[in-house]
Simulated scan of single mutants.
Amino acid sequence: MNVNGEDSVAEAIERELQLLSPAGRSSRALAERLLDPEFTEVGTSGRRWDRRSMLSALPVMQGAAEDGPQYAPSEMSGTVLAPGIVHLTFETVLDGTRARRSSIWRKLDEESGWRMYYHQSTPVPDA
């Protein structure tokens, strides 16, 4: 990792984009590799998700079908909070609905790589 963590942030962004893609959402094997064993999320609806419930729901959620609405991320940036911890922030649009998002990625070892530990999505009201 370089001094300012650019490589760590770039790796976390790459994996975030995989999770947002239809391929990442519809493949349980890929999602299992990307979600931390202790993963939790507070979704746009306010619902709290754990890893097991998210893995079950991802393939049928919006954004999972190649021929359906897909996430359009923008303004993605990140910072290294500590060695092995990256915080990403960005916005998405899915089927006309905007959300501000925040993800914490952690890397426990080289074998598992970066995994999403926490995610929160907040709806953006219409202007």
Rank of each mutant, 00 (worst) to 15 (best):
R47V: 13
P83K: 05
R48I: 09
R47H: 12
L17E: 00
W49E: 10
R52V: 11
L35G: 03
E91G: 06
P59W: 08
V93D: 10
A31D: 05
F39H: 01
L19G: 12
M61W: 04
P83Y: 01
A82C: 03
V60A: 14
L88V: 08
W49N: 04
L20G: 10
E32H: 12
L34H: 02
G46V: 11
T92D: 09
H87F: 01
M76N: 07
L81N: 11
R48F: 03
T92N: 11
G84Q: 01
G43M: 01
H87P: 02
L19N: 12
E41F: 08
A82D: 07
A29E: 15
H87Q: 15
S26P: 08
M76T: 15
M76F: 09
M76S: 10
L20M: 11
G63M: 07
M61S: 15
Q18M: 13
E38A: 15
P69L: 13
G24E: 07
M76L: 15
S77G: 13
R25T: 00
H87A: 11
A23E: 15
L20I: 03
R52P: 00
T89P: 08
S27W: 06
R28L: 00
H87V: 08
A64P: 07
A64M: 06
E32D: 13
E66S: 13
E41D: 08
Q62C: 01
S74D: 07
V42T: 12
G78I: 03
A72H: 10
R33L: 14
Q70E: 02
T44H: 00
G43S: 11
